[in-house]
């Protein structure tokens, strides 16, 4: 059970850290990286909870779903990166324009 606790709590901290990075950065690439932190934190949390069997083996069903998740989040990352790069090519800016003109941070 120690492992479930150690890695599960790390996963929870990673999700929160990634979420904070996602809302506090304006640069699109930093937001994409933060999104990946949220994803991997979720996988770690899920994987830690999959390791609760009394004989110490890891549940294969969550493992398979995590592998699927890793591949899908890579596809999302690649698409987001391509969109961000295109935006950068066209506007020269690495971030989205402000919606609210008063909010200049």
């Amino acid at each position: 059970m120690t492992q479930t606790l150690i890695f599960g709590l790390t996963g929870a901290a990673l999700i929160a850290l990634g979420f904070y990075g996602f809302v506090s950065h304006r640069h699109l690439l930093r937001q994409i990286v933060a999104f990946n932190l949220i994803g991997s934190g979720l996988f770690l949390l899920f994987g830690a909870l999959a390791r609760r069997a009394p004989d110490g083996t890891s549940d294969p069903v969550p493992q398979a779903m995590i592998i699927t998740g890793i591949v899908v989040s890579f596809a999302a990352t690649a698409l987001a990166e391509a969109i961000a790069e295109r935006l950068h090519d066209r506007t020269g800016r690495p971030s989205l324009p402000d919606l609210d003109p008063d909010d200049d941070d």
């Binding site: 606790l5 009394p54 069903v61």
Partner: peptide, 12 residues
Amino acid sequence: VVSLAQPAAGLI
């Protein structure tokens, strides 16, 4: 996590 950290066989 803390409240779920009890032995469970899951789908094994």
